[in-house]
Design a protein around this nucleic acid. Structure first.
Length: 439
RNA sequence: GUGAUUGUAGCUCAGCUGGUUAGAGCGCUGGUUUGUGGCACCAGAGGUCGCGGGUUCGAAUCCCGUCUUUCACCCCA
């Protein structure tokens, strides 16, 4: 059998793993700058914890874990589908986080801020930028309704992407309350989800495409409202204001968006865009919603929003939360395509000591240990094989220097050091070597 | 879930309308060079042509199924 991995998953070899860690580390630094601390939750949750939180489509994509042993045979026997799988792999990090907050509510100080970098699984069909296993980097805050949180999250998004070299992203902002107000004024409140999902496609399929899809879902709109709602491929904020008029929830949403928008702009973040067509599919969002896109990548690389009732589902009422999720794998692909990763992420040792035999090997190890004590990563080649092979190893691992300690060097306490890039070779004492490698 | 698409050596690929020993480049191993690599030259190893079935005297090549790859839709990080 040819070795391979399940579809929609991928291996991260040395260099790829280093690159991905670079993304994690960069984001972590920003998260911690805003006083978020890490938590972790198990890869699997009880199925009932997950179902019903992501909408119909989302539920379908949950990876269920088949029951085993007696439980399985019993479930098959009785034909009880719900007993076939009682556990599932987590679909995102937000719902498990909400579960965690409710479960440990007496041990937690609110507002509770955490970040979480872990993989999630979706039983989707893989395609560009879409995997069945991928890492999310979530920052969430539960237990405060203040819009300060929204403002800070936008700042985190902005700083995070800038630090990754992706300062040219667009941060989109919208508010579900505003959308709800619009839907109320259109008289189609009971088709809120259907409407917003279709509206989200405006820039992709245009006005006619949206109208067509709406009518396919049994939603028809009066012409005058359509004209207020959107133009060919965008929308007109003044017209939207006219559309929602005195609608209470709509104006609430509008005020929230404006507050966040103005504050963030005042802090010099210019790539923020109000987009009333932004919907976001996850059902639990209730207030501000965010999404980050890049013009060289066709799907969003970060998304999030406020959820007023998520903990309520688990029994903790009136606790609002808000958070965002960076899609590490999409960011990885985008950065790879743009060549944004720093070089030498995989440089392991600064110097490799060649192996000429047992005596020489031990002499080299003694030097290596002294370098290590000075925080200089280094290694001794483990086998006394031919030089060609040892050189190649150093080259493949991007080790810049080769140290040679043979009989001559041992007897006069020196180390022959060869710069592998230039071919330059010097005879140094240990102190000279330390000095050179510390630069 | 729907519709396309791909699969030949470790990697990237060639192999014309079916014809007998399936090729190249890179990589790998050994040698020219038993403590001095990158270059060059020489030699060598490595493939049930994704898998299963069918058509045929004969299949990498045609047909069916299946898995896999990639892409779009749905939906999403």
């Amino acid at each position: 059998m040819k070795p391979s991995i399940p579809k929609g998953t991928r291996d991260f070899l040395l260099e790829a793993a280093a690159k991905r860690n670079y993304i994690f580390d960069t984001l972590k630094k920003v998260f911690e700058q805003y006083a978020f601390l890490p938590v972790e939750t198990p890869a699997m949750e009880k199925l009932e914890t997950l179902t019903g939180k992501y909408g119909e489509e989302g539920d379908r994509l949950i990876f269920k874990i088949l029951a085993r042993g007696e439980k399985l045979s019993k479930a098959l026997e009785v034909g009880n589908e719900t007993k076939l799988a009682e556990e599932a792999l987590r679909y995102d990090l937000t719902v498990p986080f909400a579960r965690m907050v409710v479960q440990y509510q007496n041990e937690i100080t609110f507002p509770f801020k955490r970040y979480q970098i872990q993989p999630v699984w979706r039983a989707d069909r893989p395609q560009k930028g879409r995997y069945r296993e991928f890492y999310q980097c979530d920052v969430d805050m539960i237990g405060s309704k203040s819009l300060l949180n929204e403002i800070e999250l936008v700042q985190i998004i902005d700083e995070g992407f800038k630090n990754l070299g992706l300062g040219d992203v667009t941060i989109k902002l919208n508010n579900r309350k505003l959308l709800l107000g619009i839907v109320q004024e259109l008289g189609i409140e009971n088709q809120f989800i259907d409407f917003t999902v279709v509206l989200d496609k405006l820039d992709k399929v245009g006005k006619d495409g949206v109208l067509k899809e709406l009518s396919e879902k049994g939603i028809s709109l009066a012409d005058d409202k359509v004209n207020l709602l959107f133009k060919e491929s965008g929308f007109d904020l003044q017209a939207i204001k006219a559309l929602i008029g005195q609608n209470q929830i709509g104006n609430e949403g509008l005020n929230e968006v404006n507050f966040v928008f103005d504050a963030v702009k005042a802090f010099g973040i210019s790539n923020l865009e109000l987009d009333i067509t932004l919907a976001r599919g996850l059902n639990y969002y209730t207030g501000c919603i965010f999404e980050v896109v890049h013009n060289e990548f066709n799907s969003s690389i970060c998304g999030g929003g406020r959820y007023d009732d998520l903990t309520g589902i688990f029994g903790l009422k009136d606790v609002s939360g808000v958070g965002i999720s960076f899609g590490a794998d999409r960011i990885f692909d985008l950065m790879e395509a743009k060549g944004l990763f720093p070089k030498n992420l995989t440089q392991s040792a600064k110097i490799l000591f060649a192996n000429f035999g047992e005596k020489e090997m031990l002499a080299s190890l003694k030097i290596a240990n002294q370098l290590r004590a000075q925080n200089i990563p280094c290694e001794v080649y483990p086998d006394a094989v031919k030089m060609k092979k040892q050189f190649k190893y150093a080259e493949d691992r991007k080790i810049p220097y080769l140290g040679l300690i043979g009989e001559d060097e041992m007897s006069n306490a020196t180390i022959t050091v060869k710069n592998l890039a230039t071919g330059e070779q010097t005879s140094s004492t240990l102190d000279e070597l330390l000095h050179m490698l510390n630069q």
